[in-house]
Structures are given as structure tokens and as C-alpha cells.
Amino acid sequence: MAETLATIRRAAPCAMISIRADLGRAGDALAEATGLAMPEQVRIVTDGSRALGWMSPDELLLIGPLDARNEMRDACDQALAGEHGLVLDVSDMRVMFAIEGPRADDVIRKLCPVDLDAMPQDGMRRTRAAQVGVAIWREGDGGGRGWRLICFRSVADYVETILRNAAIPGAHLAPR
């Protein structure tokens, strides 16, 4: 039996902080508070333990270790002191999947209407996986290219099902 196209697993819970602000005004302060550079449009910046993703022109998603959730939230809140902004701990709201293996791209290509070739290496794309909203970016190795995918927690079982279906052995996308 051939191998699955990629391994699918739920990543360990992590801290996720949602930040809404005028990034033009507050970007520098937020960069300092998070210790990460401001991501460009539809990109994600990471230092190995934390990541800062561009979600919309006035929204960022800060990802880090679970035990740092309060510290991260408070730092962002302080960075926005005096500004109109919104910082929320949304660590419980989403589930993160790791899709890893030499054919991980194939799994994503079956589910998301996204031209992966046109997506920069550090791109973060909010899109649709089959019937639910997700965000995807490249991360991890697993012997090839890997992906991270986040979705809302209520649909995590559904997302796991479609990811596993897309990864069944032998169902690669290369021409035959």
C-alpha cells in the first residue's frame, strides 16, 4: 500500500491573540511588543516560536506558546494604549492542523481554490477548504513541504475528515 500523501495531525494547542488596530499608526508598537517584524500584506512572519500573520488591513493574528497567552495579550494591549484597538485572546477558538510530507501540496490543492505556485514562501492565505473558512501557510518539514492550516474549532472534525480524504494513498495529483 502506498503511503498517504501527507501526514495529518492536530498541532498542540497554542496561544492565539487577535489584534485589530490601525496598523499604519500602531504597527511599530505592535512589532516591538510582539518581538516580530510587521508582516506584509498576506504574509506571516515567524521567529520559530512565535508568528505574526496578516489577516486583513487592520487585523493581525499573533501565535505563540500556550503558556504565554496572557503575557502576549497584555503586551499587545499595552502597545495599543491610547489607540483605538481590540486585542482578544482567541486561543480556544481555532484548531491548527499540520499537513506534512512530500505531497502536502497536493492535499491543499484538492481543498483550497488557491494558486500555490503564486503564493510566496512566507504567504498566509485566508481562503476556503471545501466548505469552511481556513487560513494556510507553509511551515514544518516532514520530508518535504509542510503546511499549517487553522480553522474554527467547531468544524475541526470536518476539516480532519476532508484532509485525510485528500491525503489517501495513491491519490497524488501528478499526471499518470
Binding site: D92, F152, Y158, N165
Partner: peptide, 14 residues
């Protein structure tokens, strides 16, 4: 793939 368990998203609470 939209059949069986994957026919449509089934949202579940915690």
C-alpha cells in the same frame, strides 16, 4: 468528496 461525513460541515461544541 462532499458525501458521507464530508457532505457538509457539522459544527460541534466543546
Amino acid at each position: 468528496d462532499a458525501r458521507g461525513d464530508a457532505f457538509q460541515p457539522l459544527r460541534k461544541t466543546a
